[in-house]
Design a protein around this nucleic acid. Sequence first.
DNA 1: GTCTATAATAAGATAGAC
DNA 2: GTCTATCTTATTATAGAC
Lengths: 190, 190
Amino acid sequence: MSRTTGDRRAEIIQAAVEVIAERGYRGASLGAVAERVGLTQQGLLHYFPTKEALLVAVLAARDQWDVASTALHGTTWPLEMLTSLVEYNATRPGIVQTFTVLAGDSVTEDHPARAYFEERYRWVREGAADMLRAEFGERLPGGLTPERAAPLLVAVMDGLQVQWLLDPAAVDMAAAFRDFVALLGGTGNT
Amino acid sequence: MSRTTGDRRAEIIQAAVEVIAERGYRGASLGAVAERVGLTQQGLLHYFPTKEALLVAVLAARDQWDVASTALHGTTWPLEMLTSLVEYNATRPGIVQTFTVLAGDSVTEDHPARAYFEERYRWVREGAADMLRAEFGERLPGGLTPERAAPLLVAVMDGLQVQWLLDPAAVDMAAAFRDFVALLGGTGNT
DNA sequence: GTCTATAATAAGATAGAC
DNA sequence: GTCTATCTTATTATAGAC
């Protein structure tokens, strides 16, 4: 059945996300992923013919997950929405870790996820600029425009994730992000 | 001679930095590093008995490099100094890439560089807080304190590096950093 | 100090049985 | 759809000659 096959694939993708979080992409062996869903390495290759095909599926799943969690936590004010996304992320270290590791890895030569992250950051910056424009208009503190603030917003989200993953006790990711929103002149601060 | 040995070790460390930038830590084989300095893999092991020992040396070299470049570009105003560090980094994609990759990798389980980055971020945040206090005093825009702005400053630097490495044409790392300084109420903006 | 030889694993992938 | 068997290639590391 194609239903069963889809379920199996979803299980495998989930397992791959976990193993990548623990050991990175290069360190994530197909055998370790397979074992987690009760398959042999060769059995897994029936669903994803190569390791790279599995990675592509993991990245595609992330995009879908983004859309879903945005819908789930959608509120009226765009920046509020981003703040709740950060709060939500703070409860899901596994996923955050997987994509922090992959994004870092992707800057290496000929990395199979490089094009994905290049494109992803481009549209994330565009989305952030739109969001900032809707929230604050054309003029932001420090003489910034939404387009110039956008890469900073994205950088803060990513950079905080690294610090938080390394030392969750020392870095309150959600609070820090609200601090940044406050810097932009928003009302994200309590 | 111990002089020759030191030179050789320095060469090897430099080669390791390059190979890690290209392929990540797990992807950086000792053979590839050795080849770059005209040695066999086994010849390299004479200088660094294990792969992990070489990584430790790479991390130690980074700390020394930090100190050196700080001295080199030191100016009177602390934040100006950081801005020139970012400008300097924008001319050295190799080093930036190595440590972006290593930092991302380090969040995985039992990674040999994990403790290093954990400590490093701790003191970098402390240093940033001191710098912000010296520059702006106790009160920053958005009701922030130096301690609360510090992780944001560090996050911006790191996050911009990822975006810049992936797409240098789309992200002007130094300009964006100056924009962030402007947000803090500084005069880093032209 | 650097090499050759080699051990010991481990990985991704293919072929083909059931 | 999943397995066993196997190929091929890499990798870290050790032993010991020169």
